[in-house]
Design a protein around this nucleic acid. Structure first.
Length: 152
DNA sequence: GCCAACGTTGGC
DNA sequence: GCCAACGTTGGC
């Protein structure tokens, strides 16, 4: 089983939103970065665990845990003219962008803040805390996973 | 293929 | 709102 971290802006979609979706499940659409796309398409497997990170908000940090419930399939929002994530170069017979479905596992008892994560030498190498990192999907090692949840 | 211009991300 | 960092675009 693999571990991941996925960023979301809580004003767009938060761990609370996921908790209250039907079946506590949602498709993770809108990823438009090739490196992130490749991980979604090629590496994410059903049952993989995901840290849900809230970005671009008052208290950036890890807010909850989700699980991959459906492996990659074409992101239909890429084909929808006028959609925020529309990509005219993507075609249904040659899809460019993919998404997985994630299921709610639980909220953390508290937000583990980015500042706190950056402060921990144990998390050196975690993509999230590397300078200038902008990936919205990134792998997490089992060691980092355990350590982060130990901070809760 | 180079690289300047531009757009986006996202912390602060 | 600022701006550093990075990705993408497109002229050449």
């Amino acid at each position: 089983m693999n571990y991941w971290l996925m960023k979301t802006e809580p004003t767009e979609f938060s761990i609370d939103d996921l908790e209250h979706r039907p079946n506590q499940t949602e498709s993770w659409d809108g990823v438009r970065n090739y490196q992130a796309r490749n991980m979604i398409r090629d590496q994410m497997k059903t049952g993989d665990q995901v840290l849900i990170y809230h970005s671009n908000c008052d208290h950036p940090g890890i807010a909850g845990i989700a699980v991959i419930v459906r492996e990659a399939y074409p992101d239909p929002t890429a084909f929808q003219s006028g959609h925020k994530h529309y990509d005219p170069t993507a075609k249904p017979d040659a899809p460019r962008w993919f998404m997985v479905d994630v299921g709610f596992v639980r909220k953390l008892r508290r937000i583990i803040t980015l500042a706190e994560l950056k402060d921990r030498p144990e998390l050196e190498g975690l993509a999230l805390v590397r300078r200038g990192n902008r990936l919205s999907v990134m792998p997490v090692t089992p060691q980092h996973w355990e350590f982060i949840l130990g901070l809760e």
